Deep mutational scan, measured.
Amino acid sequence: MAEQVALSRTQVCGILREELFQGDAFHQSDTHIFIIMGASGDLAKKKIYPTIWWLFRDGLLPENTFIVGYARSRLTVADIRKQSEPFFKATPEEKLKLEDFFARNSYVAGQYDDAASYQRLNSHMNALHLGSQANRLFYLALPPTVYEAVTKNIHESCMSQIGWNRIIVEKPFGRDLQSSDRLSNHISSLFREDQIYRIDHYLGKEMVQNLMVLRFANRIFGPIWNRDNIACVILTFKEPFGTEGRGGYFDEFGIIRDVMQNHLLQMLCLVAMEKPASTNSDDVRDEKVKVLKCISEVQANNVVLGQYVGNPDGEGEATKGYLDDPTVPRGSTTATFAAVVLYVENERWDGVPFILRCGKALNERKAEVRLQFHDVAGDIFHQQCKRNELVIRVQPNEAVYTKMMTKKPGMFFNPEESELDLTYGNRYKNVKLPDAYERLILDVFCGSQMHFVRSDELREAWRIFTPLLHQIELEKPKPIPYIYGSRGPTEADELMKRVGFQYEGTYKWVNP
């Protein structure tokens, strides 16, 4: 592979701008107003304001973009700056750019259920340069409990009458099928589907988006991507930290609602779906819905739930269990780990287990898709061969690698495990991989909904998990304890083995 010439960040961002501006969906010269509902909250200060700053800094926003914060707290732009700027990672050389960014910011205080507050917000936006005809993007960085009041008031008082209007809704989209349907029906009564952007930030990850290209742009994968060759698929999300004093919020939802029903299920769809007619948003989402419709409700015998306990040999936070978090209700049975087996009941995947695993306070930070292939028929190497695996590593250190057998150097035919490896950090030294939120917010500006969740996708996802969630809430089974920093409950490994996964433990990928 030829040595790549190092590029400056300015040059890299210039390439990104060229890609972005050559499309006809990006209205570079139009006025846009980006409204952050819930501007005083954690999500706004840690993710949304920093993301908008990065896009502005790199010249990736339309030229005439204004940012308006809205929340109940009586704040000023200076207050917003004070709480969000520490997350910007701005350099001293960017000081003038930073001043320009905050000059485009404003803030309006108001209630979430008060019509007069929204009329005041609308008047404020109209007073901005060309504000009355601007395109408006409303980001709901809010708890779902206020979605209905907020969307109703936005629709009645704050819509642009000339430009387009788009609304970005953060997960969780309800707690179960019934609450999700209620919320979807409410929002759909106010906005068209092409105006609604239900954001799952995992769909903005580079390697998640790469799944489609790997599958449908490489001839070698087509013939082997089926039940005849693939023994099982494992989708993993692991965090090495616990709730760390923020367990009160987590306890309301648990690990299945927080990660599995959305992030992991979306990745499953991209692995299992048929080739779409095109890369058009609805063509892709149509195929994802077909996959979900082929999955039956989760069966309790295919589920393992766990909850982390303190590690007596650990240090600091590792010595504390979930129930030691003062914000967690006493005696909570909320799971911090889950392993679930699903089956896609169609011709391509009949009988292939899709194993979804996620948890907190585990032994490493990792998100990946792992396809394990069947054993080689007619073994001539005296059971020395391990199964081939194709691994798409989402985070950290984005990579695609194939675990395969090669001859060990020497005189004899002794096979050993090795890999074919594409590590993004080595291959793409001159490429700026956008943060997931950067990519998705740019998608909203461009009107691309491919990486957002459609209402029928959402409904099918909740259909699969709601009976299990209701059973857990009714019966309150005690989750299996696992030690902070471990791989999780051993019962999860036993479940995976029972459905056909072979864990060798003899080879570990190392970032080159």
Rank of each mutant, 00 (worst) to 15 (best):
E3I: 01
E3K: 11
E3L: 03
V5F: 12
S8E: 04
S8R: 05
R9N: 11
R9L: 05
T10E: 14
Q11D: 12
Q11K: 06
Q11G: 07
V12Y: 07
V12C: 06
C13P: 06
G14I: 03
I15K: 05
I15H: 06
L16I: 14
R17K: 08
R17P: 09
R17C: 06
R17M: 09
R17W: 03
E18R: 12
E18W: 08
E19N: 09
G23S: 15
G23Q: 13
G23Y: 14
D24Q: 13
D24W: 08
A25Y: 15
A25P: 09
H27C: 12
H27S: 15
S29Q: 14
D30W: 05
T31C: 13
H32I: 14
F34T: 06
F34A: 08
I35L: 06
I36R: 01
A39G: 05
A39Y: 00
S40V: 07
S40H: 04
G41H: 15
L43K: 13
L43F: 13
A44N: 00
K45A: 12
K46M: 07
K47Y: 14
T51S: 03
L55K: 00
F56I: 03
F56K: 02
R57M: 02
D58P: 01
L60A: 08
L60D: 02
L61A: 01
E63G: 14
N64D: 07
T65G: 01
T65W: 13
T65S: 11
F66Y: 15
F66L: 05
F66E: 07
F66S: 05
I67N: 00
I67G: 00
V68F: 03
V68M: 03
G69R: 00
G69L: 06
Y70L: 06
A71V: 01
A71L: 00
S73V: 05
R74C: 10
L75G: 04
L75T: 07
T76G: 05
V77A: 08
V77R: 06
V77Q: 05
A78P: 09
A78G: 09
D79I: 04
D79G: 04
I80G: 02
K82E: 12
K82G: 06
Q83W: 06
E85P: 00
P86T: 06
F87K: 02
F88T: 02
T91D: 04
T91P: 05
T91Q: 11
P92A: 11
E94I: 02
E94M: 03
E94C: 06
E94V: 05
K95T: 06
K95A: 15
L98D: 00
L98I: 05
L98R: 02
F101A: 00
F101V: 00
F101Q: 00
F102I: 04
F102V: 02
A103V: 03
A103K: 13
R104L: 06
N105G: 02
S106N: 04
V108N: 02
V108G: 01
V108K: 02
A109S: 10
A109P: 08
G110R: 00
G110S: 02
Q111N: 11
Q111R: 08
Q111D: 05
Q111M: 04
Y112G: 09
D113M: 06
D114G: 06
A115M: 09
Y118N: 00
Y118C: 03
Y118E: 00
Q119G: 03
Q119Y: 13
Q119P: 04
R120T: 07
L121D: 00
L121Q: 06
N122T: 11
N122F: 04
S123I: 07
H124P: 00
H129W: 07
G131D: 08
G131Y: 05
S132V: 11
Q133F: 05
A134R: 10
A134S: 15
N135P: 03
L137H: 03
L137C: 12
F138C: 00
Y139C: 08
L140T: 02
A141E: 02
A141L: 04
L142G: 13
L142R: 01
L142S: 11
P143I: 07
P143E: 12
T145R: 07
T145K: 12
V146M: 06
Y147P: 06
E148S: 07
T151H: 04
T151E: 07
K152Q: 11
I154W: 00
H155P: 02
S157I: 08
C158A: 05
C158Q: 02
M159E: 09
M159L: 11
Q161H: 11
G163D: 00
G163V: 02
R166L: 01
R166G: 01
R166Y: 00
R166C: 01
I167L: 12
V169F: 10
V169S: 06
V169L: 11
E170N: 11
E170D: 09
E170I: 03
E170T: 10
K171R: 14
K171Q: 11
P172C: 07
G174Q: 04
G174T: 07
R175T: 07
D176E: 08
Q178R: 10
S179D: 06
S179K: 09
S180N: 06
S180A: 03
S180L: 05
D181Q: 06
R182V: 08
R182I: 14
L183N: 09
N185A: 09
N185T: 09
N185K: 11
H186I: 07
H186L: 08
I187M: 08
I187A: 11
S188W: 06
S188K: 11
S189H: 14
S189M: 09
S189D: 12
L190M: 08
F191N: 00
F191G: 01
R192S: 07
R192N: 13
E193M: 02
E193P: 04
E193F: 02
E193Q: 04
Q195F: 01
I196Q: 02
I196F: 01
I196N: 00
Y197H: 01
Y197M: 01
R198Q: 03
D200Y: 07
L203M: 15
G204L: 13
G204W: 15
K205F: 14
E206N: 14
M207G: 10
M207R: 03
Q209Y: 11
N210Q: 14
M212S: 02
V213Y: 04
L214H: 13
L214K: 02
L214Y: 14
A217C: 05
A217E: 05
A217G: 04
N218V: 00
N218I: 00
N218C: 01
R219C: 12
R219W: 10
I220W: 15
F221G: 03
G222L: 08
G222Y: 11
N226H: 11
R227Q: 07
D228P: 03
D228M: 08
A231S: 13
A231Y: 05
A231R: 10
V233L: 03
V233W: 01
I234W: 08
I234L: 10
I234G: 07
L235R: 01
L235A: 11
L235N: 00
T236S: 11
F237P: 01
F237K: 04
K238F: 15
K238E: 15
E239L: 09
E239H: 06
E239Y: 04
P240L: 10
T243H: 13
T243C: 14
E244F: 04
G245Y: 09
G247D: 13
G247P: 15
G247I: 12
Y249W: 14
D251Y: 02
D251K: 04
E252W: 09
E252I: 04
E252K: 13
F253C: 11
G254E: 02
G254A: 03
G254K: 02
I255G: 10
I255N: 00
I255K: 03
I256W: 00
I256M: 09
I256F: 03
R257N: 15
